[in-house]
Amino acid sequence: MVPLIRRRQQVVVAPVDPAKLEVGDIVLARVAGTVYLHLVSSVDRARKRVQISNNRGRVNGWTSHDRVYGNCVTVDGVARSAVVGKTLAADSSDSS
């Protein structure tokens, strides 16, 4: 994902509402049995799927919303502004 995310940079991923994903989001998604960070390059809301790519133009393919686990919210402590309003709220029953 260089230059978006460089080797050894720490990222924070939060659960996401897949229906709110947009082109340019960085998501944690399962592809062929392995979980990777990928760039969202297209959104197909009707079929509830996103096209995932690397940031060098290579398209990896489509993946369904149920295989998208989270959205990258920070890279090395710097917040990604594009994620505002897309992450799922924490379950209020877990707080004490």
Rank of each mutant, 00 (worst) to 15 (best):
A19K: 15
R45Y: 06
V16I: 11
K86Q: 08
A89G: 13
V27R: 03
I52A: 06
V40F: 05
E22W: 10
S93G: 10
A82V: 12
E22M: 15
V23T: 12
T63K: 03
T87I: 09
G24P: 03
S53K: 00
S41H: 12
V16A: 08
V83S: 04
L37I: 08
T87V: 12
P3T: 08
P18S: 10
A46Q: 12
G33S: 02
I5V: 10
A89P: 11
S41P: 08
V83R: 01
Y69C: 02
T34A: 07
R45K: 12
Y69L: 06
P15I: 07
V35P: 00
D44N: 05
G85D: 04
E22S: 15
V23D: 13
I5L: 06
R6D: 13
A89C: 10
V50H: 03
A32K: 11
V16Q: 04
K20R: 15
G85Y: 02
V84L: 15
G57K: 02
V68Y: 01
D66A: 11
V78M: 15
S96A: 15
R7T: 13
R6M: 12
V2E: 14
T63V: 12
R56E: 11
V35R: 01
D25P: 04
A29I: 03
V12D: 09
R30W: 01
R8Q: 14
K86F: 05
V27I: 12
A29D: 01
V27C: 06
N54L: 06
L37S: 01
I52M: 07
H38L: 03
V78W: 13
V35N: 02
H38Y: 03
K48E: 12
V2G: 09
Q51E: 14
R56H: 12
K48D: 11
T87S: 12
K48W: 05
I5C: 04
S92N: 10
A19P: 11
